[in-house]
Design a protein around this nucleic acid. Sequence first.
DNA 1: CTCTTGACTGAGG
DNA 2: GCCTCAGCCAAGA
Length: 110
Amino acid sequence: MQLDTLSFFDKVYEVAKQIPYGRVTSYGAIAKYLGAARSARMVGYAMNGSHGKDVPAHRVVNRKGVLTGKHHFDGTNLMQQLLESEGVEVIENQIQNFEVVFWDPSKHLS
DNA sequence: CTCTTGACTGAGG
DNA sequence: GCCTCAGCCAAGA
């Protein structure tokens, strides 16, 4: 995939789609992988437009493993349910065993 | 071009 | 560890 021909938003989507089932990553990790480590906010901002696409936005959380973006999903706990259905334990918007389920794109992708 | 908007992050207290 | 502040920067108006 030629990321250089895509807009920043599209790059984020491409990486997000690579997140394995039952794993999660952070906005900063994605940004870093894209070579824009200072644009973590943009990653989250980009996810705003991820609706309608096959982007697992629920697998992207902030560095603490907190579902900061759950408010952008339909229900109040839809994001949490999606994660739990994948085997990720979530309590009060906080991912449990975050270090275990964390998936770093810069380490798993070429 | 300028200004605003953030689903963030790291540093400092 | 928590809270607050400031820097970050792409996209859209």
